[in-house]
């Protein structure tokens, strides 16, 4: 999401309002499974927002990724790509104290906190959610290992130096938090312009199979 491709002009992405609504519902179900996986792992209750879906130019993608809540805050961001019948990449944004909160929830008493916790969380949330989306669309996907994009940095400043993807992309964002804790996160996944037409066809097929 932070890097760009070079080459010929890419087609403008388009996702009709009906398709956006359907994608939102599909993501909602996928994220519900991810929240359940997190809740089961931590023995907590997880609240999540409805998905926000935007078709944006790559130059403004970070405005959607950040949202007002995240723009001026220190965050840890993990990135994970997915491949196969659906291709894209996802970001998981976490409060900087996510690792300490997780250790507390899990009863771990260790001093130094490395990137393992946000990486594991990203893997769980992105894998379950995007996997759930792909399953509903009858698609098979795999995942690249997650990687930390940056850790405990102000997000707006951190992304300012990143190159932007060219062309229009479909962005989907869901916020979540652990009930009664200051543990906030956001999962954003992006479908590149060359994937958007395929995504729209898959959604059309999904709707046709559901409603005829």
């Amino acid at each position: 999401m932070g890097t760009s491709g070079e080459g010929a002009a890419l087609p403008a992405a388009h996702l009709a309002p009906d398709a956006q609504d359907a994608l939102g519902e599909i993501v909602n179900i996928g994220m519900g499974r991810a929240a359940a996986a997190l809740a089961q792992s931590l023995s907590v209750f997880v609240r999540m927002s409805p998905p926000t879906i935007r078709v944006v130019n790559g130059h403004s993608q970070w405005d959607v990724v950040l949202g007002n809540r995240w723009r001026d805050r220190d965050v840890t961001v993990a990135r994970q790509g997915f491949f196969g019948d659906l291709k894209g990449e996802a970001l998981a944004l976490f409060d900087p104290d996510v690792a300490a909160t997780m250790n507390d929830l899990l009863g771990i008493r260790s001093g130094a906190v490395g990137p393992e916790v946000p990486l594991e969380l990203a893997n769980l949330l992105i894998g379950t959610c995007v996997g759930g989306v792909a399953a509903q669309l009858s698609q098979k996907i795999g995942f690249y290992p997650p990687a930390i994009l940056f850790q405990n940095r102000e997000l707006a400043a951190a992304v300012a130096g990143l190159r932007q993807r060219r062309g229009d992309i479909v962005l989907v964002a869901v916020d979540f938090n652990v009930d009664a804790r200051h543990f906030l996160g956001r999962v954003v996944f992006a479908f590149a312009p060359e994937e958007t037409a395929r995504l729209e066809r898959l959604i059309a097929t999904f709707l046709t199979e559901a409603f005829g």
């Binding site: 996928g30 519900g32 499974r33 929240a35 359940a36 809740a39 089961q40 209750f45 999540m48």
Partner: peptide, 12 residues
């Protein structure tokens, strides 16, 4: 009717 499949969701 919800996509939230946490075990606590129906209880709540």
């Amino acid at each position: 009717v919800s996509g939230d499949v946490q075990t606590q969701a129906p209880e709540k």
